[in-house]
Nucleic acid binder design. Sequence first.
DNA 1: TTGTAATTATACATACTGTATGATTAATAT
DNA 2: ATATTAATCATACAGTATGTATAATTACAA
Lengths: 202, 202
Amino acid sequence: MERREVMVGKTRARVLTAARELLLLKDFSGFSMEAVARRADVSRLTLYYQFKSKAGLLEALYDHIARRGKMEQLADVFRHGSDPLATLHDYIRVFANFWASDRGAIRRLHGLASIDPDIGKGLQARNERRRQGVQTIVERYSRVYPALSSARKAIVIDTIQMLTSFETFDALAGSSRNMDDVVSIIQEHVHHAVGYAGKAPL
Amino acid sequence: MERREVMVGKTRARVLTAARELLLLKDFSGFSMEAVARRADVSRLTLYYQFKSKAGLLEALYDHIARRGKMEQLADVFRHGSDPLATLHDYIRVFANFWASDRGAIRRLHGLASIDPDIGKGLQARNERRRQGVQTIVERYSRVYPALSSARKAIVIDTIQMLTSFETFDALAGSSRNMDDVVSIIQEHVHHAVGYAGKAPL
DNA sequence: TTGTAATTATACATACTGTATGATTAATAT
DNA sequence: ATATTAATCATACAGTATGTATAATTACAA
C-alpha cells in the first residue's frame, strides 16, 4: 500500500482542482459531475467511486481549500498561552487569511451550503467548531478581565462569531481593500465587542 | 382591464406563496418549476408565461417578500429630515424587520443568488441601492459631525453596509435571540463605526 | 499467481429546464 | 353579439443532470 495510495491521491487532487476551477466560472450551471470529470480527464464513475455524490465531492473540496488556506495554523493560536487579547487577534488573522485564500470558491460553497442540507451539514459542523474556539478565548479572557459579565458573554461570543465569519470578511474586503486593513477593522470591532461589556482591556 | 388583472394577480400570488413554501422545505431539491406548479394548482406552462424562467420566478418572489416585509417604510426614513443618527437607527430597524420577516426564505434566496448569476444580478442591484442609502446617511452625518474624515468615509460606509446586511442579522439572531436585542447590538456597533473615526457623536 | 482496489464502459431510470405548437377558456373591445 | 386578445393548459420534444446497476479492464499487492 504505497504506490497505489499515491495514485489515488493524485487522482483526487486532479478532480478537486478541476472542481474548484469550474466552481469559479461565472456560469455556475456549468458545474456538473460530468464537466468535472471531463476537465480532470477522468471517468464520471470515478467521481462517484471516490466521493460518493456531488455533496461528497463539495465536502472534500472544502477540506482541500482549508488545507491550502493553512488552517492548521489555528491549532498553534491556542497552544501559545499568551494574552487572550493577542490570541483573539491571531485568531482573526488566521481566519482572514483563510477566507482570503480562496474567496470566490468559498463564497460559492457557502451559497451551496445554505441550499443543500447535505453540504450544509459539514459547514455547520465547522461553524460549531469555530464557535468553540471563540468560546474558549472569551472564557480565558473573562478570567483575566472579570468585568465581563456572564450575561453579556453570550452576546460577545455571537458577535465575535459574526465578526469573524466569511460573510463579514467578504463584505469588508469589497473589491479591492487590502487585507491588513480588513483585519484591523475587524480587530477594532472585536475589541469593542469585548470592551463595552466591561472595562477597556488595553 | 380590471377583472382580468385581478385574476392574474391572484394566480401570481398563489404561485409565489407555493414557491415560498417549497423554498422553506428542508430538502431544497424539492424546489422545481414542476413542484411549484403542482402546489399552486396551476400548469407548469403558466409559470413560464408569467415569470419567464426559474430566475424570474425567484426575482418576483424576492419582491413579494420585500412587500410583505414592509420595505416601503424605508422611504419614510429618508423623508423625515431628523438627526442623521436617528435616521441611522431607523434605517437599521427597518432592515432588521425585513430580514426577520422571512428569515428562512431570504437565507435560501441569498444562497441561490451567490450561485446563479441570473438571480444574483437582482440582489446585487438591491445591495447597491442599500449602499446608496447608507452613503446618503453618512453624508448627512458628516455634515453635522465634520470630524469624520473623508478618508475614513469609505470604511465607515462599508462597515455599516456589512453590519446591516442579512448575514449579520442572521448570525446575531441565532436561534432565539429577541429582535430588539439584535437591533440594539447592531446599533451599538454602527454607532462605534461612525464614532471612532471622529469625535463621539452623543 | 491470485486476489483485490481503482478505473472505465455501457446502459438505464428518473427528473428537471426550456421551448414549440396548438387548443381552450374567458374577459375585453368594437 | 361578435371578433379579438390575454391567460391558461395539454402534449410533446430536446437536452442535460444525477445516481445506480452490471460488468469489464487495468494495475498494484499479498
